[in-house]
Amino acid sequence: MNDLLSPGSLVTIAGGVLTVVGSIAYASGNANLSLPTIFYGIPILLGGLALKSSELPPARRITPKSQLKNERQAATPELGKLLGDVTRWKYGQKAHLESSLESLKLWDEDKPPQLLEIEEICPSGHYGLRLRFACEAVPIQLWQEKRNRLSRFFAKGFEVTITPLKGDRLDLFLLPVGVSASDKQADAREGDSGETDSGETVNG
């Protein structure tokens, strides 16, 4: 569904429809319809295909927009900008947060890190984000070495915790200073004793 709804796909479909309609009109001798539709359709189709070739899909958004709405609005605006930036279609970029990762020296031109998903979390009532990366050619050890700089980079008053996962993946937690990512698991365990929180997502 995301592929179908991308801007590149919509432009390609529009150009394809115009081109087909113009070709049919030309074959049936309807010059008034065929000339303008082919004239506009082919460039639009080619433009759409060019967009598709440079398309970067949004990172998977784990937390629905309807959840944590108040916490999101009350949080530091840098987090909202980060969330919005990585959950939209990009063109001409190899990875989300490309310029940020380059600045942080967490970049490889051939196999850059890929942001797979982003989750809004609220451990102990403190709003933050969890970003899951596939490290690709950038070793996890380098991410850990850059942790202090990462903490200063995204938002003032926040710090980064890095949790290595299987393979070349890691979870990057961005939370207010003094708030531990482990508080999220504690909140989840407390929720299990009562009504299930539909917003809690279990990630493998």
Score class of each variant (00 low, 15 high):
Glu78Pro: 05
Gln93Met: 10
Lys81Trp: 14
Phe153Asn: 06
Ala155Phe: 04
Val20Phe: 13
Asp85Cys: 00
Arg72His: 15
Ala95Ser: 15
Ser34Met: 02
Gly80Ala: 05
Val177Thr: 14
Arg152His: 09
Thr63Ala: 07
Leu170Glu: 06
Thr196Asn: 01
Gln185Cys: 01
Gln114Phe: 03
Phe158Ala: 07
Pro36Ala: 09
Ile62His: 05
Pro43Asn: 04
Gly41Met: 00
Gly29Gln: 00
Thr196Leu: 09
Arg130Asn: 11
Ala74His: 12
Leu18Tyr: 07
Arg189Gly: 01
Glu145Pro: 02
Asp108Thr: 08
Ser53Asp: 04
Val179Lys: 06
Asp197Pro: 02
Asp192Ile: 04
Gln141Phe: 08
Asn203Leu: 14
Arg149Ile: 13
Ser180Leu: 07
Ser182Cys: 00
Val17Ala: 14
Ala50Glu: 00
Phe39Leu: 15
Gly48Trp: 03
Asp187Glu: 11
Pro64Phe: 12
Gly84Trp: 04
Leu45Met: 11
Leu174His: 12
Leu10Asp: 02
Leu175Phe: 12
Ala188Ile: 10
Cys122Thr: 12
Leu51Glu: 01
Lys81Asp: 06
Leu104Pro: 09
Arg132His: 01
Gly178Thr: 04
Gly8Tyr: 05
Gly15Pro: 07
Thr163His: 11
Lys69Trp: 08
Leu106Tyr: 08
Gly8Met: 01
Leu131Lys: 03
Ala25Thr: 02
Leu45Pro: 03
Lys90Ser: 14
Asp187Met: 05
